[in-house]
Design a protein around this nucleic acid. Structure first.
Lengths: 132, 132
DNA sequence: ATTAAATTTGTAATCATTACAGAATTGTAA
DNA sequence: TTACAATTCTGTAATGATTACAAATTTAAT
């Protein structure tokens, strides 16, 4: 669907920069950080401010368009895939992989209202593991 | 088991302060932050430095005695329970609850070497939910 | 007791993120 | 078009957790 329309549907005015930020995160599988978003878009939008990127991703996250991930515990990453899934970070090649979480994966939260789920594993991916 | 012996068994010299830090985290269910550890121990050890707390918890984590948790994305919390389990943070009362993760909860990581797992949910706990 | 090694401490630096206020842009009505 | 208000964008300064580092202290062994 048209990104501008998606933003509008969430009561966010689809300014050019907002659409650029939304599109980049949506089309980037690595779940970019604010810095990566800024570095990628800055050549196309020379006056872009880091603060604008921070503001936009926060706005998208609070509207449910993005999920905020603290995958490495250093910088927050943003994911336009809202569905329930896990993230695996390879500590050798630094890539991030998505993986599936089964239904009823947990117990002990009966009666709790779960609004946010974050699942983060790390180690060595299959490629890096076979190199060693 | 004796905390000093546990540290020794992991090739960590059991200094008084290290044992105090280890004991406090082990006996505190809330998975304290460095600041909470420091604030709690400082009256008993007036010369304690925050840096020492940082050094010690990092040492314990790298030795496999603690797990580092980025539950709220702001401060790192430390957990002396090494077993695989999840953490739920209630956004109303700010408490952290442990919960069980089933075996084979995920798929898509065949052949990967998983060395660290972090599972973090948030929302409203059963008590806060019933208050509303 | 002396000396070397390890630990502890305190200050200064780092770095991601946020606060904030002014500048620029957009939308609307005459 | 012009004027005006509302929103968005920008840049600098502040915040706050964590780390770097070197000096001070403690520990261990001879």
């Amino acid at each position: 669907m048209d990104s501008a329309k998606i933003l509008s549907d969430h009561n966010i005015k689809p300014s050019i920069i907002r659409v650029m930020i939304y599109d980049f995160v949506k089309n980037t599988k690595s779940h970019p950080t604010v810095d990566e978003i800024y570095t990628h878009l800055q050549p196309m939008a020379p006056t872009l401010s880091r603060t604008t990127v921070y503001n936009s991703v926060k706005l998208f996250a609070s509207s449910g368009l993005f999920k905020a991930l603290s995958i490495d515990g250093i910088q927050i990453r943003y994911d336009a895939d809202i569905g329930h899934h896990g993230h695996f970070r390879c500590e050798e090649c630094d890539r991030v992989f998505d993986f599936k979480i089964h239904e009823d994966a947990e117990s002990g939260l009966d009666g709790f209202d779960i609004t946010k789920r974050e699942i983060f594993y790390s180690g060595s991916c299959i490629e890096c593991k076979s190199k060693n």
